[in-house]
Design a protein around this nucleic acid. Sequence first.
DNA 1: CTCTTGTATGCAATCGATTGCACTCCTATA
DNA 2: TATAGGAGTGCAATCGATTGCATACAAGAG
Lengths: 340, 340
Amino acid sequence: MTQGRVTLRDVAHHVGVHPSTVSRALNPETRHMVTGEIATKVEHAAQLLGYRPNPMAYSLKTNRSLTVGVIIPDLTNPLFPPIIRGIEDVLGKRGYTAVIANTDNDFDREELILDRMRARRVDGLILATARRDDPLLAEYRADGVPLVLVNRDVDDHSIRSVINDDAEGIRLAIEHLTGLGHRWIADIAGPQALSTGFQRHQAYRETMAAQGLDIDDELIIFCDAYSVAAGYRAMSELLAKQRNFTASLAGNDLIALGCYDALREAGLSCPDDVSVVGFNDMPFIDKMAPPLTTVRIPHYDIGAEAARVLLSEMDNGEELSDEQIRLPCELIIRGSTAKA
Amino acid sequence: MTQGRVTLRDVAHHVGVHPSTVSRALNPETRHMVTGEIATKVEHAAQLLGYRPNPMAYSLKTNRSLTVGVIIPDLTNPLFPPIIRGIEDVLGKRGYTAVIANTDNDFDREELILDRMRARRVDGLILATARRDDPLLAEYRADGVPLVLVNRDVDDHSIRSVINDDAEGIRLAIEHLTGLGHRWIADIAGPQALSTGFQRHQAYRETMAAQGLDIDDELIIFCDAYSVAAGYRAMSELLAKQRNFTASLAGNDLIALGCYDALREAGLSCPDDVSVVGFNDMPFIDKMAPPLTTVRIPHYDIGAEAARVLLSEMDNGEELSDEQIRLPCELIIRGSTAKA
DNA sequence: CTCTTGTATGCAATCGATTGCACTCCTATA
DNA sequence: TATAGGAGTGCAATCGATTGCATACAAGAG
């Protein structure tokens, strides 16, 4: 019968020992309590009978689900799949399963998902949804479940996070543009409620100043979302001002694509009339017209590193450290930027 | 204490009844066995104490994990996230959690994942990885776990599947091309080991014949993968033949992008020299240069429908029906096709 | 007024593993 | 040669829910 699942008992019977001995023999942590001879016998029997531990029984007893929740704002955003891959690879090696959920950028949905996650008793959480001042955060920590932020950070750095070096990325982008002779650089910034949007915009101000360039506040537009539509609206708004500028920094690649649309609609050419730089180097962005110059972030590594941080936190019990890990990024120069 | 989880016992104590009564009161299936008055009391107490059933205990006893495995060949392929969304939405409403895993198109990895899934005792499986003659299938069914295929089918139709109507899509594409005056249409087909690749190619042959067009076998190239690189190689190979053709059908959008690259490299213009039609209408494909004419498939609905089929199978026990559900698709005409 | 029928609840076993404790040998040590 | 100490196993409780069975009590029928 396929129903007849093999249990510890069965293995014990087969070998002629007590189930607890089998348990100890099979668990690396306790193997040393068992005679080598019996241990190997048990292992063979387990192999032979096709024994698989029942994770529910294990979890019930040990109160560990061997499960980690991964909460993503939008799975259809190509930025996240590679991050998830990184997370899964690292967690999988340690026997953990990642349970992925996406909030669709919807607050209520996020609360619902959080609810589900705690009901499922996840052993840890990786969040890619953090706002700079996140009202759900208190809830997230309420259970004392180890928590790591990925990609986005919170302002008070009260939680460990693994992010990319936004400031560095912006610096590279602006230096590239000034190197091409641009002096009037617009900032089509991402949502300021998110650390990425905020950090990148701050970096814009700082780098512009450091380069001795004037900042024209009229050249700064804030998007209300990381989306093509928001980017389109922002660039349209900027163009309507009839202000002088020859280049623009976009909050991310999606926003940059929206800028493309607005520019095209206005009869302007990128990069001939306006250079555009994105952020993220999402898949296929190199195939757009024109191929986007953008800042590449180490998606996979960010995910992998976050998983590692989480694992260490789960191992050491409550770490409650507020370490922040920043991974370096890299400017990828393509066809959307040209001489001023 | 955050540790002090509320259990059935606690609720029972609070109300002054036996845990089993609480269990019955809280379960909709058995609520009728309990006095209305007590039932409401129990519910209030549960609410008050913040009771949450422990899923492990539930699963251990009932042998249902409330978990469904979703196996995807490649999460970074933009085709799949919307499908997953559809699956999650439907499953979530019924209290099931989707555990997503990707095989990275790697056979060994798939076996490993399958292993993990059965270890986790998933209640059902949704597979997007099926090959036409899949050697792992026997293993998949070995446990008698309900199984539904999504997006790809197997030749013997021995398993329920939810797919899009590939033949119809190809028909629409070819009729569009012939309408533009094309007579020599190449087929840069997807992997023939996958039902999608095979079906689409068959449809190509049939539709060409139905339209009274000659099929030049030299114009047919098979890709070994659904990837940009494979598409590039295939189109390069085709061009090297110096054969006459003015349009080409690509196995999917990724292959179409590879065709773009090869054409550009050869100094040919799409659509002026060669028209290209893709398949899937993946996100952002409308922003490519040129925007790709392609067949749109109802990603989300495919996922949602697959989840529904799976749920019904899980409800009714072993259904073992071989029903195949085909969802209609739609041709989206953009800039990659032009008059011959 | 008794007896049947039915309904609401309690009892206790159970799912399959983990783990503190007790027990039995066996081996050093004094 | 006693005896302490330690190593290897078995026993049984436990995690938190579900569920068949027993029981208690009420109401309706004869």
